[in-house]
Simulated scan of single mutants.
Amino acid sequence: MQFSARLFQLICTVLLVALVAGCGSMPKPMRNLGKSDVDFVMDVHAKQLKVQMVELTRKLYVRNPVQLSKNPSATIDSRIEQIFGPEESIALPPLVFDELGGVTGIDAILLSFDESFEGDRVFAATVGLSEMLRRSYNHQQEFFIIDSLDEQSLYNSARNIEIFVWRLYHRKDEYGNPLIYTNATTDTGGDISFDRLFTKMVMIQDMMALIVADKTNRGITKVAHGVAQFVFLPVP
């Protein structure tokens, strides 16, 4: 009886792996058979993060039209398509563009704040931030039972968003103007919608890190340092 139960479990596991391996071409209801409750939660978080990133990209280009004009053939929608690709993709390719000299992830973010960089800073920043976040989700936006995420990478990516925001608000050119414009403030207040977007993104990553840590029963190594010492954390 015990042998039969183990054999049945083995057969189920093999069938499940085969099911998940072919999930990309299957209808969504069938793909859902290969998911646990946590996988559905991962799906929601990954897709919501993409929604926030698309909105951020659009808002940055509206606020920084001079950056978009550096590529005469580009539009906001074409840039979004370049970075985020088809809506229903399960696996997401690494974001590498000749326009940025092949740099991506944190290196592309750093390039966007390099005063000597003459290219599209918004493109460099959003490509870099998007690639860093994709790595925290193993370049996936749909997850199955055999998939796993790293809670430390998720946590580090949340801190990197905060570091990105600090640089975004403080890096200026030789004339004291922001390298990339964000919130428009006036004496009576102003637009703080960028702050709300970044807060949502940090909350998504922190929540996902806690969920994965609970699932794997592993701890998260937290960091504490001053703003002036901010250095981007690794997200392998």
Rank of each mutant, 00 (worst) to 15 (best):
L92M: 04
D98N: 01
D98F: 00
D98E: 00
E99D: 03
G102D: 00
V103M: 07
V103A: 09
V103E: 09
T104Y: 01
I106E: 08
I106W: 07
A108G: 07
I109K: 11
F113E: 06
S116I: 04
F117E: 14
A124S: 09
A124F: 03
T126V: 08
V127P: 14
S130M: 03
E131H: 02
M132E: 12
L133G: 03
R134V: 01
R135K: 13
S136E: 08
Q141K: 10
Q141N: 08
E142Q: 12
D147C: 12
D147R: 09
S148Y: 05
S148W: 06
S148F: 06
D150A: 10
D150F: 11
Q152G: 11
N156W: 06
A158W: 05
A158K: 12
E162C: 10
I163W: 08
F164Y: 14
W166I: 03
R167A: 03
R167W: 06
L168W: 05
Y169I: 06
H170T: 12
K172D: 05
D173N: 08
G176S: 09
A184Q: 11
A184F: 04
A184H: 07
D187F: 07
T188M: 09
G190I: 00
D191F: 01
D191K: 02
D191P: 06
I192V: 03
D195A: 06
M201Q: 02
I204M: 13
I204A: 11
I204G: 13
D206M: 10
M208A: 12
L210Q: 15
V212I: 10
N217L: 12
G219K: 12
V227L: 11
A228S: 10
V231C: 15
L233C: 12
P234M: 00
P234V: 03
P234F: 02
V235F: 06
